[in-house]
């Protein structure tokens, strides 16, 4: 396997805890201590009530495909060998939705509402990306 040539996450104070969790194969989300809103992506302030009081919760990593697209053209050379690949909007049981990839099945088999669970792609020493595969 050659050097990883896809874009890597951009880590800053907002996103650090999320990506550190991914490295440990945990999907961590912030839950506002004031209004209870569970948010993704991570941020210093709750977008609903502007409180800074937050706690991190760990998702079970189960959800469903809300929608998806099967990419047949890559605009970043790093994805050319993956074509066709699936980008999906996955809704987790805890509430938040995230943009991710669906793996572990044929792209033609992906459907809206399909149940999925997290699977970890350890792309570099520093980063693991949360992707999803079909589950029962």
């Amino acid at each position: 396997m050659g050097e990883y040539n896809k874009p890597l996450p951009n880590v800053n104070d907002d996103s650090n805890e999320f990506w550190a969790g991914c490295k440990e194969h945990q999907l961590r989300f912030q839950k506002c201590k004031v209004c209870g809103h569970v948010r993704w992506p991570a941020s210093i302030l709750c977008p609903m009530c502007h409180s800074k009081e937050t706690k991190w919760i760990v998702s079970e990593g189960k959800g469903r495909v809300y929608s998806f697209a099967v990419y047949h053209v890559a605009y970043h050379p790093g994805f050319e060998n993956d074509l066709p690949y699936v980008v999906a909007d996955v809704e987790l049981e805890e509430g938040p939705r995230l943009v991710t990839n669906i793996v572990g099945c044929r792209p033609d088999d992906v459907k809206c509402e399909m149940p999925v669970e997290v699977v970890w792609d350890d792309v570099t020493e520093k980063f693991s990306l949360p992707k999803f595969k079909p589950c029962c």
């Binding site: 896809k6 874009p7 890597l8 996450p9 951009n10 800053n12 996103s15 992506p41 809300y66 929608s67 998806f68 697209a69 099967v70 990419y71 053209v73 890559a74 605009y75 970043h76 790093g78 994805f79 993956d82 690949y85 980008v87 999906a88 909007d89 995230l98 943009v99 991710t100 990839n101 459907k111 809206c112 509402e113 792309v123 980063f127 990306l129 992707k131």
Partner: peptide, 26 residues
């Protein structure tokens, strides 16, 4: 989209609208 969070998954502009299309079709 949001490059900070979504870029590592290979998102492009047509892909976002393709997701809208699949949701609308479903």
């Amino acid at each position: 989209g949001d490059s900070m969070w979504e870029y590592p998954f290979g998102t492009t502009f047509p892909g976002y609208y393709a997701m809208m299309a699949n949701a609308h079709m479903a």
